[in-house]
Each structure stands twice: as structure tokens, then as C-alpha cells.
């Protein structure tokens, strides 16, 4: 049910995009849930988005958010001996890039994406955190964050606002 509504939503965006070439962007990638595969997927995505003339800062934010989302899947959804694939859809939306990330791993803890940790960094060097920054970064940089568990699958959706030269001209 939820899945259908999500797919419909992205379909409508696609239809809209088809009528306007400036908005026409549809990217789909499926790859193994492994750190090196994530790195290659990011290189592929950033290269594909290159023609949009995004601001350097936006490129960095897009790469960072997608990296954090996919690293979380590698490390937590497919934790331990679990393995599987990550499916990524990116489509052009009115105010940026609409992303859907799908995996068959474990559900999010408590059924929701974590809020992100807030650390007290005024502490002895030995107590400084070495991880747990991911969700705070994601939540800082995306809009319209949504999550659904459908059957054995996780669907994470979000909008990345980018100031695209093509769209704003």
C-alpha cells in the first residue's frame, strides 16, 4: 500500500519530467551492499549528475547524503553475515533530486530512521566519538525524509535540494 503510493509519487514526477526536458532526469542503480560497491556507485552517480551543473557545494551534499544512507545499509541493515543489494532511484523534482533507496536488510530500529546523535565534544580526547555522525548529517541535509517497511524491504525516500543551473535558468 505504502509502496504503491511511493511508486506512484515517483511516477508522477517522471511523467511531469517527460513533458519538460529541463526536468528530465531518471537514474536507477542496483549494486551489492559492500563498501567498495558504494564508492563505485557514488562515482557513477556524481558523474551522471555532472551535466546538471550543480554548485560544488550541492555536489558535496548529494554525495555525502547518499554515502551516509548507503553506508548505513551496509553496516546496519545487512549487518554480520547478511548480504544483499541496494537499489537507488534518483529523479528530478521541482526543487531538487527525489531519491528512493531500497534494501532487503533488517528494518530500522524502532521502525523509524534514527534522529542522529548529539555529542558533547568538550571532553577528554580519548572520549571523542569516532562514529554515529551519519543520521545527524542526513537529517541536516535532506527534506521530506520518509521511511516504510514493506514486507522484508526498507524504502527510504528523501528530497535533496540542489540549486541546479539548468532548472533555475
Amino acid at each position: 500500500m505504502h509502496r504503491d503510493s511511493q511508486l506512484n509519487a515517483s511516477y508522477e514526477r517522471k511523467t511531469e519530467a517527460d513533458t519538460n526536458l529541463e526536468h528530465n532526469l531518471e537514474l536507477r542503480l542496483i549494486f551489492r551492499s559492500e563498501p567498495l560497491a558504494v564508492r563505485r556507485a557514488l562515482e557513477c552517480i556524481l558523474s551522471d549528475l555532472g551535466h546538471l551543473d550543480m554548485a560544488l557545494e550541492d555536489c558535496g551534499a548529494v554525495e555525502l547524503v547518499l554515502a551516509e544512507v548507503m553506508n548505513n545499509i551496509v553496516e546496519h541493515a545487512y549487518v554480520g553475515d547478511r548480504s544483499g543489494v541496494i537499489e537507488l532511484h534518483i529523479s528530478g523534482a521541482n526543487h531538487g533530486l527525489f531519491c528512493t533507496v531500497i534494501d532487503d536488510g533488517l528494518p530500522m530500529p524502532d521502525g523509524n530512521p534514527p534522529m542522529g546523535k548529539k555529542y558533547d565534544l568538550y571532553c577528554p580526547r580519548k572520549d571523542l566519538p569516532e562514529g554515529g555522525f551519519g543520521w545527524a548529517l542526513i537529517r541536516e541535509l535532506v527534506q521530506e525524509l520518509g521511511y516504510e517497511r514493506v514486507g522484508n524491504r526498507n524504502y527510504l525516500t528523501f528530497l535533496l535540494n540542489v540549486e541546479r543551473a539548468i532548472l533555475t535558468s
Binding site: 569516532e130 562514529g131 555522525f133
Partner: peptide, 29 residues
Amino acid sequence: DSSGLGAVVASMKQLPAGKTLSLLDLTPT
């Protein structure tokens, strides 16, 4: 990414006592 950031933090934490780590010339991202 956050794993890389964690590795930079870890690089400082694992320094022998009395040593300091500073960072030079960060790119915008």
C-alpha cells in the same frame, strides 16, 4: 564521509601522549 571523519578523529586519539594533530587546507566539502 562519517566513517572517514571517524578515522581522522581516531588518528588523533591514537597519538602517543603529548602529541597534537592539526589539519591543513580542507576543501569546501
